[in-house]
Write a protein that binds this DNA or RNA. Structure first.
Lengths: 226, 226
DNA sequence: AACCCATTAACAACTCGTTAACAATACTTT
DNA sequence: AAAGTATTGTTAACGAGTTGTTAATGGGTT
């Protein structure tokens, strides 16, 4: 199964060359501007993003921020021209995992891609940092969620589900995907069980209006949060 | 109180990115060469060091040796370029507490930092010093716990378990982890044995309401204490 | 023998994920 | 539109499995 890469680059000559090279090993979706790329990202999952910084309409930083909004995990590699000023590079902290200065060699790029793909494969299960969601703080290691000093203890399942939602904030999670990810498989009764859990999570967030779990009928759910 | 990190990296672009990220959580002092960094280290204490291996004037290994000379405890994390030869990387393993191969992700770096900071925080008080918990004083060396002049003698196991809880106060300890840590392995009957010990500890703390050992069903226990 | 302590046994109490049941909502067909 | 069908929201009840607690057991030590 080939890994899916989102590649955004407006210089079509360079893009053609690069995409052609990468396609031997990866499933590459290439776009020439940020808006189209973002639209594509909303539709499907990618395993890694390669973004040129200078793009028409929506630049690489904005795009990265938008992508991070939806997925806190996917590795992002920036491609930047040598001439960038220091302060511009500050933008990198939006969540880039690495950057490459043009002109780069193919080997160099592929090396970085491999490093990140291997890592995300391994590291995925071990992320235990606190994360904030609306006015709450979620502590995955302790299965606990805190707000204004009050702590609610979650069960293992509730916690796993909430974490999945937070990792995919503002993105649609398909029913099937949630079930396979957390319950291990997908049948009618597990689906109903999931509905019960979603109802319980909603109850927890009931008094913070900025957080909602929206249902997308017949498809899945989306955690909407700032 | 933010933890102080000594960060030495000569690639200013990468350094800027990294330092900027870390500054959200830590107090970062960044230097571009080993000599300046060492001078700074002589002046003040740091809680952790992050050293690039390739540095002008005084390389990461030399710097690490100099730092170790003055402080045998401070955790050191090396950053090394992918191109380093295997044998060099082996060298890393010997002196450093950990190393990270470039390119690394921010999350990975922060994860490692957290691991070391927490470790050094916990290890210090853990040895054999008296520690207070609620209105009690626990003396791990003598397996004894005192309150208002009254001393209760604990058994070796009770003491080991209590100490583990105190070292991980207000954090969930998984059943499996407790069992492996104290009993050496993890089977059904040892689990029941542990439950008995927890019941005994609870009995000891029964008259101090500020101390509880909470069960997190199917996961583990948490010592809740001020 | 007497004692200490960890383990095992036994049973009570509790928790969680699931299932059930019914209401509310969305979609399809007529 | 209206009626019919499928999906989702919510609450409550159930039952398997886990945990709390006390007592009995048995190996090791003095």
């Amino acid at each position: 199964m080939k890994k899916k890469i989102l590649y955004v680059e407006d210089d079509s000559t360079l893009a053609f060359l690069t995409a052609d090279n990468l396609e031997q090993q990866y499933d590459v979706a290439h776009f020439t501007n940020g808006k189209e790329a973002y639209a594509a990202f909303k539709k499907e999952d990618f395993d890694l993003c390669i973004l040129d910084v200078m793009l028409p309409e929506m630049d690489g930083f904005e795009l990265a921020a938008a992508i991070r909004e939806r997925n806190v995990e996917v590795p992002i590699i920036f491609l930047s021209a040598k001439t960038l000023k220091e302060d511009r590079i500050k933008g990198l902290r939006l969540g880039a995992d690495d950057y490459l200065v043009k002109p780069y060699s193919m080997e160099e790029l592929i090396l970085k891609i491999e490093v990140f793909l291997q890592r995300s494969q391994k590291q995925a299960p071990a992320k235990n940092t606190l994360c904030t969601i609306g006015s709450y703080t979620f502590d995955p290691a302790n299965y606990a969620i805190t707000r204004a000093g009050q702590t609610i203890q979650l069960t293992e399942r509730e916690s796993a589900l909430l974490r999945l939602f937070i990792d995919n904030k503002n993105t649609i999670l398909k029913r099937e995907k949630i079930l396979n990810e957390i319950w291990g498989n997908d049948d009618y009764f597990l689906g109903r069980s999931m509905d019960v859990f979603i109802s319980r999570l909603r109850k927890i967030f009931r008094d913070d209006e900025s957080i909602r779990i929206e249902n997308i009928p017949r498809i899945g759910f989306k955690l909407v949060a700032p």
